[in-house]
């Protein structure tokens, strides 16, 4: 009981004085905290379930209707029992609440000197921007250690969920939300969109790649903007195709996705919803990027929004699409 009171006091202090939380030196791991909280919840849940179902079954067997037991005993109630089954659940709930509150503070209190990246969602892909300004799509690269993500969305509400770090937060257009996790081990971790965002919702997947510090630095060096600018146009186009999110709906592998694949598209005829055919050339691609509402491909629904892309970037994208034969 003393521990509970101390925990409550500590949590109150944390809540009232955020500075106190910031002063903590240890970097917590909310994912571990979640696992502990889960065990607490499961123990209480199973206990409560048995406390309900065992008497239920016992009474149903013992007091079943038979000769000599046609009418139940006349009992109105008992104040002592009512108090008992009000107070005990209250205590259990206080225990769960305080434990949860402590965990929640860990989740929402970002440690000092966190690695900080930005993620922007759109139907149906994520664009990641590293602190160095490197843009990637559907893959977030971070060094080992605590990571804070600033999240927002370009179109509808999405969500950034990383189950292995036991964390998620919605990505709301016009707002910046955040989450943080403690990436202790190098490896690849799945990312899901968990806020319903449309037809491609279940395909809105990504990954977090946690790298050793030196590997991360090497990756940054390779991809700094000076290095990227010297790339040939089709390489730049590839990066743009990914970073602008085109790849979220248009595969480069020939697979059917939310939109048509761009593999083998250039220079060939393609059928449109209005029954006509069109030859995919440079002008057509540029027009479609800027104004996708016209000339929708046959068997597809219009999902795409108009994009304002610079002409130099458009040329690079066309150069890239040309290479996908």
């Amino acid at each position: 009981m003393n521990r509970v009171i101390m925990l409550i006091a500590a949590q109150l202090a944390l809540f009232v004085l955020p500075a106190a939380a910031m002063a903590k030196e240890r970097i917590p791991d909310p994912a571990k905290g979640w696992d502990a909280h889960f065990i607490l919840l499961m123990v209480i849940s199973v206990f409560v379930y048995l406390v309900v179902t065992i008497p239920l079954l016992y009474f149903v067997i013992k007091y079943r209707r038979r000769k000599g037991n046609e009418v139940g005993a006349y009992i109105e109630g008992n104040v002592g029992l009512e108090v008992t089954w009000t107070v005990i659940p209250l205590i259990l709930i206080a225990l769960i609440g305080v434990h949860s509150w402590a965990l929640f503070n860990d989740y929402r209190t970002v440690p000092k000197d966190c690695f900080e990246a930005k993620v922007i969602a759109q139907q149906f892909s994520y664009e990641m921007i590293s602190p160095e300004g490197i843009r990637t799509v559907n893959e977030l690269r971070v060094p080992v250690g605590p990571v804070k993500l600033n999240l927002t969305s370009k179109d509808v509400i999405h969500s950034f969920a990383v189950p292995q770090f036991r964390v998620r937060e919605d990505m709301v257009p016009g707002r910046e939300t955040y989450l943080w996790f403690n990436a202790k081990d190098p490896g690849t971790y799945e990312v899901f969109c968990s806020q319903y965002c449309g037809t491609g919702h279940s395909q809105m997947l990504a990954k977090v790649t946690v790298l050793k510090k030196e590997d991360y630095d090497a990756w940054v060096k390779q991809n700094t903007s000076e290095a990227a600018a010297s790339l040939p146009p089709e390489e730049q186009g590839k990066k743009l195709f990914e970073s602008l999110g085109c790849i979220g709906c248009h595969s480069v592998t020939g697979d059917k996705s939310i939109g048509p694949t761009v593999k083998g598209l250039f220079g060939n005829k393609t059928a449109l919803t209005d029954g006509t055919e069109v030859v995919v050339d440079e002008a057509f691609i540029k027009e479609k990027v800027k104004n996708p509402k016209e000339k929708v491909a046959k068997d597809y629904q219009l999902m795409m929004q108009p994009n304002n892309v610079m002409d130099t970037d458009l040329n690079a994208i066309v150069a890239y699409v040309k290479t996908l034969k």
């Binding site: 909310p30 905290g33 979640w34 909280h37 889960f38 919840l41 209480i44 849940s45 709930i93 769960i96 609440g97 434990h99 949860s100 509150w101 402590a102 965990l103 929640f104 989740y107 969500s159 969920a161 189950p163 036991r166 964390v167 998620r168 937060e169 968990s194 806020q195 319903y196």
Partner: peptide
């Protein structure tokens, strides 16, 4: 009760 717990829900929300 588990869902209601805000710390627990951060991992299971919308799952």
């Amino acid at each position: 009760i588990a869902n209601g717990s805000v710390g627990f829900d951060i991992h299971v929300h919308d799952t």
